[in-house]
Each structure stands twice: as structure tokens, then as C-alpha cells.
């Protein structure tokens, strides 16, 4: 088949383009919300951020006012976590915003999309690993504030067992939780985006050939 012979058919396609109902339909289309996955990711991120505010702010106020005023550190910690989350939201939103900018030639756009998607995933993985550290920090905070359980337990410093055992057990839990979260996040992001990144890389490789 000669490509030239397809030109005639290609031109004839124009005679049949009646699927877009003129200016009214274009106006309807731009009034709609984008179903594009990046737009949905941005929407979900916004919901996530509002949920964090709804959860952390009342919780922080509660820790500040209740418990006879003995746990203001927890309140501060929660607000700091919310601040971290705000930065996390800002960074992710920024990356998604850049991913929506398609004002570039196809090759450059592919390079940008791959780079940003990889950056986005790396950021997601690193942020996920902060969670166990936050939990540990909170545990240390509570440790000093709350009464210890009666009798010796491996989770608390007690004359019945050496201190290194307590440190070891907490470090073990922290490492396991961090690795668990890291691999779970990696599995999840790979499931969602790995094939897409591969597809984009394949197209870019083809362009560069």
C-alpha cells in the first residue's frame, strides 16, 4: 500500500465529521470537568489535603485543651505534621500542574512527562517513609508523658532487662514498618504507573532511533 493512495481517503474523512455539533458542543465540552487521569490525581490530592485539615486541626485542638493540659507537645506535633503535609501537597500539586502543561513539541513533552512522573513517584515513596518516623517521634513523646504499664515489658526501659534490648526492639519495628510501607507504596505506584512510564520511554526511544 502506498501512503499517497491514502491521502484521498484521508481528505474524504472530512466530509463525514458530524460528531462534534458545532460551537454549542465545544462550549459544552469546555464547561465539563476533565476526566483526564492527571486532573483526577489533582482532584484526589485536594480531597486528601482537606481531609488532613479536617482530621489534624480538631485533633490538635483536642490534645491542647484536654488531658488537663499535659499533652501540648502532641498538639504541636500534629500541627507540624499538617505543615509537612501542606508542603507535600504543594509539591505534588506543582508536579501535576507541570504535567498538565502540554505546550511543547512531542519529543520534549515526552521527556518532561517521563522525568516528572518519575520525580512524582520518587517523592511519593520518600514521603511514605516519613510516616514511621513520625509515629516513632509520637511514641517517644507519649513515652515520657503517659504512665508506664505495671511490671517489666520489653517495650519500656525497666531494670529487668538491658536498655539496648528496648532500643533494638523499637528500631526493629521502625525498620520493618519503613520497609513495609516502602515496598507497599512501590508495588502500588508500579501497578498504577510503571506500564505507562515504560510506554512513554518506548515512544521516546522510537523517536530517538
Amino acid at each position: 500500500m502506498e501512503l499517497e493512495s491514502l491521502k484521498y481517503v484521508w481528505k474524504r474523512l472530512e466530509e463525514d465529521n458530524d460528531t462534534m455539533g458545532g460551537e454549542t458542543q465545544i462550549l459544552q465540552l469546555i464547561a465539563k470537568k476533565s476526566e483526564n487521569p492527571v486532573a483526577r490525581m489533582k482532584h484526589n490530592l485536594l480531597i486528601e489535603f482537606f481531609l488532613a485539615i479536617l482530621l489534624y486541626v480538631p485533633l490538635s485542638i483536642w490534645y491542647l485543651l484536654d488531658f488537663n493540659g499535659k499533652l501540648p507537645e502532641v498538639s504541636v506535633f500534629l500541627l507540624l505534621t499538617l505543615l509537612f503535609f501542606s508542603l507535600y501537597y504543594y509539591r505534588k500539586n506543582n508536579l501535576l500542574q507541570q504535567m498538565q502543561d502540554l505546550n511543547h513539541p512531542i519529543k520534549k513533552n515526552l521527556e518532561r512527562q517521563i522525568g516528572m512522573l518519575e520525580k512524582y513517584l520518587r517523592f511519593y515513596l520518600i514521603s511514605g517513609m516519613v510516616i514511621p518516623i513520625c509515629i516513632l517521634f509520637l511514641a517517644v513523646l507519649m513515652y515520657g508523658k503517659l504512665p508506664h504499664p505495671p511490671g517489666p515489658t520489653i517495650f519500656y526501659i525497666h531494670p529487668a532487662h538491658p536498655i539496648w534490648q528496648v532500643i533494638l526492639i523499637w528500631a526493629g519495628i521502625l525498620i520493618l514498618a519503613t520497609l513495609g510501607i516502602y515496598f507497599a507504596d512501590r508495588w502500588y505506584t508500579n501497578k498504577l504507573y510503571l506500564s505507562h512510564i515504560r510506554k512513554l520511554k518506548e515512544i521516546l526511544r522510537e523517536i530517538n532511533e
Binding site: 483526564n36 502540554l102 512513554l200
Partner: peptide, 8 residues
């Protein structure tokens, strides 16, 4: 083309 090619 960017929307068609690089869209998820």
C-alpha cells in the same frame, strides 16, 4: 497529539 500520545 501530546494529549493523545502521552495521556494515561
Amino acid at each position: 497529539l501530546n494529549t493523545a500520545i502521552s495521556g494515561l
